[in-house]
């Protein structure tokens, strides 16, 4: 059986963590652009940035790297999980929670929910903008832009959507809380001096990203 593995368990985990860290950088870029929508009634900053992201050739290429990253992270995550389930065909009658990293127990669950969210999120924004062309135009300084900002604001004025969005992001936060520090452990970075910082930073990052993303729909809805 062993020979059929292309990668060892450790290699798979290393790939998972590298891709994961890459995805976190994407989350940060995405969050930064989203925040541009706030405090700017003309939505110019946001729309220009969105336009740039949608048209710049380098970004267009990089976009596929990102998709590939997502796919790899998902596929490997599922493979790892299936192997893990197979490693214990018969479970315990009574099992205490010994795990020290709380959300580590639910990575597959939070991961799957994030995928579901991504699909909906994609169909709401990305696909509309990219393929359906259902988005209105707006003009800044004589240049035409898709008014992505308006689409976002319209969505976030629906209470149901805001609630869905907030829940999804909390789940993402749980995923990240374990993910960031775990990636370092998988890459072999664990040191009595630095690991406490990495652990703390992981939680900090999870909170910043989650709160940052949640802030946007709440702000728009309440405004």
């Amino acid at each position: 059986m062993g020979k059929s593995y292309i990668y060892s368990s450790v290699t798979k985990k290393v790939i998972m963590s590298l891709v994961g860290l890459f995805l976190i950088t994407f989350l940060l870029v995405h969050l930064t652009i989203n925040l541009l929508l706030l405090f700017d009634p003309t939505r110019e900053l946001f729309n220009v940035a969105a336009h740039f992201m949608g048209t710049n050739p380098l970004i267009q290429i990089f976009q596929w790297v990102l998709f590939g990253g997502f796919a790899l992270h998902m596929i490997l995550g599922v493979i790892l999980q299936v192997q893990n389930w197979m490693a214990r065909p018969k479970g315990y009658k009574k099992k205490a929670a010994s795990e020290k990293s709380l959300f580590s127990r639910f990575m597959i669950h939070t991961g799957i929910l994030i995928v579901v969210f991504l699909v909906i999120h994609f169909s709401d924004f990305f696909i509309k903008a990219k393929f359906l062309g259902e988005i209105g135009e707006i003009v800044y300084n004589g240049h035409h832009y898709e008014d992505m900002g308006l689409l976002v604001i319209e969505k976030f004025q629906m209470l149901g959507y805001v609630i869905f969005y907030v829940i999804a992001l909390l789940i993402l936060g749980f995923h990240l809380d374990h993910a960031f520090q775990s990636a370092f452990q998988s890459l072999g970075v664990n040191h009595p001096k630095y690991t406490p910082f990495i652990m703390g930073f992981s939680r900090f990052l999870a909170i910043v990203i989650t709160v940052g993303y949640i802030f946007i729909p709440l702000f728009i809805y309440l405004k």
Binding site: M1, V10, Q83, K100, S104, R105, Q185, V189, N190, T195
Partner: peptide, 29 residues
């Protein structure tokens, strides 16, 4: 057929000899 490590650190919590997960990181490295 052992499973993959997902860094839950349950092993360290239950180890009777308090073996640290820093060993796992060292092995990964």
């Amino acid at each position: 057929g052992f499973g993959n490590c997902t860094n839950t650190y349950a092993c360290e919590a239950e180890c009777p000899k308090d073996i640290s997960i820093t060993n796992i990181a060292r092995m990964n490295r």
